[in-house]
Simulated scan of single mutants.
Amino acid sequence: MMDNPFAKKLGFGLMRLPLNNPDDMTDIDRKTLQNMVDVFMERGFSYFDTAYVYGGSEEAIRETLVRRYPRDSFTLTSKLPIFAISTEEEQENVFQEQLQRAGVDYFDIYLLHNVNVENYQTAQKLHTFSFLQQLKSEGKIKTLGISYHDNAELLEEVLSAHPEIEIILLQINYLDWDNPDIQSGKCYEVARKHQIPVIVMEPLKGGTLAGVPKEAEKLFRQYNPDASPASWAIRYAAGLDGVVMVLSGMSTMDQMLDNTAYMQNFVPLNDEEHRIIKEAAAIITANIAVPCTTCGYCLDTCPENIPIPKYFSLYNNKMQTIDLFYYPQQQYYENYTKTYGKASDCIECGACEEHCPQHLKIVDLLKDVAKAFEIPAPHEQTE
């Protein structure tokens, strides 16, 4: 690992990459990604975060980073998808595949991916922590950790039982801090109690905090006309005690240039900025119908091939539309139904909800989506 992999607190999250085809998460625009990697490295940033289930990202970072830069010039993190593994032997097979995909001999940081009550039970059954410790003793991983999506009580249990955990990836943003389901603040406090360094994921809540309602953006711009809404969210997370890195899933060069500009010489939020953040959070919360982060974990489990995140995004946009007689989201929804299942095709199996890090009641929410898009629009109704 580099002498100080956390010298700059902005990490390049590789879950949402530039795409040639926005409907195919594996069709990565490698030319644009390479240019983004170069800007990131040239500006002194060096932390990259990928995972086995981020379609094509391990291979893409091999071509755009690993084969083009000295191994000791960057920090590479990946994750073991315990939720997709059923045998101890499979753990070793997946890990070896990841090394091959990424083109490396070791990972600087390796995380047990998406630890929650179900996945933790699987990890105990498969002796996963012992497996990870063995990888570390062999030098194949330098730092062992977990990414976490559950309540603070379980996190206390996990960290108490496994002192070998050296770092933790938590979902933290100013919208989820007091959320009773996600428990960002409470989980953060547990990590601090155990003195475990924190890496932050979803600081923008899947882009929600980058495209805030106009009223909230006005608050930000009045204080600092040049600061993007995204900068407020990332600086909020980066300023927390014990946070060593904040990941941003950058998918455009503009996002890369903006984020690296204000994080080049990071300055934490002051008291007035914290006050503005709280006011903006109240506005944003009142405008979000479905707090989906578009992570896509629900997609592989849906037997009806329903593009759940896409439908939730359309639904959120429609709910913020003032004109009741025209909303383009309707046409987009109908376009999707020609390829994918409709919201009303949901058979209520609940598989999606088991894999949702946001603990959304997806089955019920899809009923709302169906009501919004599958009944005649007001201008189409007849007497």
Rank of each mutant, 00 (worst) to 15 (best):
A152P: 12
N259D: 08
I362M: 03
E353D: 08
N21H: 02
G207R: 07
V117N: 14
K205N: 14
S130W: 13
A216T: 02
N259S: 07
I322A: 08
F131K: 13
M253H: 10
F6T: 06
M201V: 01
V190M: 07
C302G: 03
A377H: 15
P303C: 05
A237I: 04
N305E: 11
G56C: 01
Y311C: 09
R275E: 04
V115L: 11
S344G: 13
E374Q: 04
M41G: 12
E334C: 08
G206N: 07
V53K: 06
D176V: 00
R221F: 07
Q34K: 14
E92M: 09
N173L: 04
Q100E: 13
S147L: 04
Q183A: 06
C356H: 05
C346D: 09
L269P: 07
F74W: 05
D72T: 00
K31M: 10
F74R: 08
L155Q: 14
Y236T: 04
M25V: 01
Q381P: 09
P180E: 12
Q124L: 09
L33Y: 03
G341E: 00
N173A: 04
I283H: 08
P18H: 09
G103N: 05
K278W: 03
K205L: 15
Y148L: 02
G103V: 06
T75F: 11
Q34R: 15
F48S: 02
V363C: 04
V66N: 00
T285W: 12
I277N: 02
Q133I: 12
L112S: 04
F48V: 00
G239L: 05
P225W: 14
Q121E: 12
K9R: 14
H355S: 07
F129K: 13
E354W: 09
Y327Q: 12
V39G: 14
W177M: 03
G249V: 06
L144T: 02
Y333G: 01
V243W: 01
L33F: 03
A280F: 03
Q91I: 00
L159T: 06
Y315Q: 09
Q222S: 12
F266K: 07
A230M: 08
G211W: 15
Q329Y: 13
I199H: 08
K31T: 08
A286I: 11
M256W: 09
V53Y: 08
H194N: 10
D364T: 11
R30F: 09
D181M: 12
